[in-house]
Design a protein around this nucleic acid. Structure first.
Lengths: 329, 329
DNA sequence: TTCTTCTCGGAAAACGTTTTCCTTGCTTTG
DNA sequence: CAAAGCAAGGAAAACGTTTTCCGAGAAGAA
């Protein structure tokens, strides 16, 4: 294996000089820099990121903490796009990434998790699907031992950024559009998982809209479950004018229930998953570009690792009407 | 950070001894072993896998090469399950995993890819979605520089195993069931991607069945595309009795076409993706347990890394009829 | 007893980087 | 002209393991 030592020999300099060139340190003359780069070129040298990680604690090793509690393929789609976006940007930024699924750290204590991450020379973390009651992850963020980017949860401190769309506004927007299109007054709102950050934000959006338009809203907890949403719709939709759901999957469940009951109510969802295009009925929903969110998350993490301060990044969302023709390929 | 050195001091032995205990080497007395283990326990020591990887070339670092050419969420679902299964088993086997998506190595030469993998101290690889014409991956496997497990492609050599279901038999089975249920004679077969291993295997299964039952088969290439399958069905299904598709996504496309044409033909798919439950019509399909396939792939890779020889592992498949009620949760 | 063979454990090199500190020679300043 | 400052590059320690080799002592054989 060709190492930095070979490059040094080839360029006629010390290995420390090569390292400096590779990492864009100052105090290297343009001429030496050139010579080293030529040697790198010639020998096809690729730095060993494992050694780099071992040597420098502040290296570019990054972990993705991915929540995969659910069994649904909708979640698969969302997670996959997140991971794709994150890896994509990481590659461009030359960051090493390891992906940890929640089952890999679910029953660790914070201390264990921290030890594990350190044993992997991890310096930065992107956290997905963090709920309000997740003590371990909250403690992890609070220690500030790692640079963190939390996706879809408004956690910010000196070494923690948050990235996501404005869930409150998005829920407001999509509900407003649906309600005004159909001139509704009585809303059945099927909320997400209890104690989820996005759940509460979306509910706030709905409540704000209700106040503004003078709507009555019945809120029920759907836990992001298609089945629950279906049952809730069965039970309560009859004397409502519209079913607003905090996720597409629940919207699908609601729609199925309405079809079974043979009544029509407008339904709107949230997320913009592909599945929405297959259920026959068109529905309003919020399109989140998950890959883009995660690209931004990785970008933000990179900034943090470079010494930047934590901050809140809000990305735009989009209202769409999902139908089969738009997604088939 | 607590290191092996601390453990050694705590246990009153040399660090080499600790390492030996940790890696189950012989030539350590039971008493010393105990003492070291107690120290590990007491100090909550977690070995630094980065250092281990750097130090020993035959370490447990493994790469997943995941093909994500397509944009469809069906692929997301399949890939996600593969990754989940692989990571799950890797965790149990104490293997370090890095996940590489195809866009990260697509335009590398073999040499570059090999260099990159070595720079990551990778010893074993699981390859997904390998097509017959992928020169780079084929060369990678042929060099035998890494232990490889190829999923769904019958490549085997001294350091390469293959893992997957029997695609030929599976296609035979599901087509036979569908055809016999509906008493068909004239088959429209929509095949997968040209030059795919599974594509050819499944086609062989269909052809064998046709010979046995005396069917006529029109074969068209659907490239695993829903849209193509839809168009093919539009064009050719009219004077056929059944549409057999080499993937669920294509089966969905075919079904949509039949609905648009307002004619009924039985359709069967292949893969058992969740989406199948949402299209309204029930269809026969082959259920592959992707997570299980990948668990086995990881297991096999572990065996190879431990010195085992390459071999072909064939896993069972299952015929199912997918409907909404079975997948909602 | 003496030699050989084992078993156990330690010392130290190696893995490929990063980073700190030092040297050298040159330029500036007073 | 001496002192100070600075730029460029090198030497070597450090990161936390694994692994090879060696030595000490005990046990067995002659």
């Amino acid at each position: 294996m060709v190492s930095i030592k070979d490059v040094a020999r080839c360029a006629g300099v010390a290995i420390s000089t090569v390292s400096k060139v590779l990492n864009d340190y100052p105090n290297v003359s343009e001429e030496t820099r050139e010579r080293v780069n030529r040697a790198v070129e010639e020998l096809n040298f690729v730095p060993n990121s494992v050694a780099a990680a071992l040597s420098s604690k502040q290296a570019g090793r990054v972990a993705l903490l991915v929540d995969i509690n659910s069994k649904t393929s909708a979640i698969d789609e969302i997670n996959m796009q997140h991971i794709t976006g994150a890896l994509n940007r990481a590659m461009e930024l030359n960051l090493d990434v390891i992906t940890l699924f929640s089952f890999m750290y679910r029953n660790m204590t914070v201390e264990e998790l921290i030890r594990y991450l350190k044993s992997q020379s991890i310096a930065g973390i992107i956290i997905y699907g963090m709920s309000k009651e997740d003590k371990v992850l909250h403690k992890l963020v609070e220690t500030q031992e790692f640079k963190c980017v939390v996706v879809n949860a408004p956690l910010v401190n000196k070494s923690t950024s948050s990235v996501g769309i404005d869930d409150r506004k998005a829920q407001y927007d999509v509900a407003r559009k649906t309600i005004e299109e159909n001139n509704c007054k009585r809303v059945l709102y099927i909320a997400g998982k209890r104690n989820g950050y996005v759940t509460d934000e979306r509910l706030l959006g709905m409540e704000q809209l209700a106040k503004e338009l003078g709507l009555t809203v019945l809120v029920r907890n759907g836990e992001f479950s298609e089945l629950l949403a279906r049952n809730i719709t069965m039970k309560y939709a009859k004397n409502k004018d519209v079913v607003v759901c905090a996720s597409d999957l629940m919207a699908i469940g609601a729609m199925k229930a309405l079809i079974d009951m043979d009544i029509f109510r407008p339904v709107c969802g949230f997320d913009g998953i592909v599945l929405m295009g297959y259920v026959g009925k068109q529905m309003n929903t919020v399109r989140q570009n998950f890959a883009e969110v995660s690209r931004n998350a990785m970008e933000e993490l990179h900034t943090l690792l470079a010494g930047g301060e934590g901050r809140k990044v809000v990305l735009p969302h989009q209202l769409v009407r999902m139908k089969y023709e738009d997604i088939i390929c």
